[in-house]
Amino acid sequence: MTPVAQRAERPADPPGAPPADAPPADVQEPPAHPDAVRATAHIRAAHNGRVTTLPRLRGDGPFHLRRVRTRGNSATVGIIGAMSAPLGGDRLALDIIAEEGAELEVTTAAATLALRGPTTAAATYDVRLTAGEHAHLRWLPQPLISAAGSNLRQTCTVELAATARLVLREEQLLGRAGEEPGHLVSRILVRRAGRTLLDQQAAYGHPEPGWDGPAVLDGHRAVGQLLLVGPELAVHRDPVLLGEGSRDGCAVLAPLAGGPALLATAVAPTSSTLRTLLDTAHAHALPR
């Protein structure tokens, strides 16, 4: 990522002049300090009957968007971090939509590093994913790193039509090498055809009680989930256990209750062992 200095070149929106397509009122609190960034990037994919097009690709603040390649019916967008973010007080959001029949993959070029900003106020990072009928959306960002002293509230809100397909991976690394993590609260809320499929909040780092103890992370510093949703998963599946008894982390892949979906949950000592567990879970999830 480019240095923090770039922050000054793209200041927060001036007071009283919200951007044309401002986020909903509930996230539109004023920035906590003058250097805080408020930014919402938009990606919208549509299907024109032949291929997936990107009628809206609008970066903002730290999010620079790149069309990576278009392969077959699918479009791929890379998000490139253009400044150090999120810092304390920042309000960041990503709005990603795959309309009916579109096939969209969104990745990030580098890990997202939550750092302590000029204040200890929480930063917010809200990802909204929407997939219409017969759309296929893959959200595969690089890990989020909760650095010492940072304070981040992250949400991921997913709205899926009944025939939409989703692949979602979230990885969280608690602290850079050898440091204590910051404070990270992360909620994922997934709705499919109007019904809530998954609602989970995780909270790690000081001052959360018990977060590092034997009931929650037990010393692991990498935690992640892989969620797969799609009509083809509406078959009975037994849970798959990975890494039981291993010192390199463990995972479970199992069906959710409210619809055709499989969720892998993994904890591991490092980001690479975590990725291996999630990749292995993904391979087990693919129809055979």
Binding site: V216, V223, C250, V252, A254, V267
Partner: peptide
Amino acid sequence: GVDALPSASSPLLDITGEQHAA
């Protein structure tokens, strides 16, 4: 609505709950 209710979770309790059942 029910979204207001806590959804606090623990990854290890989910993983080891499945392990233990086996």
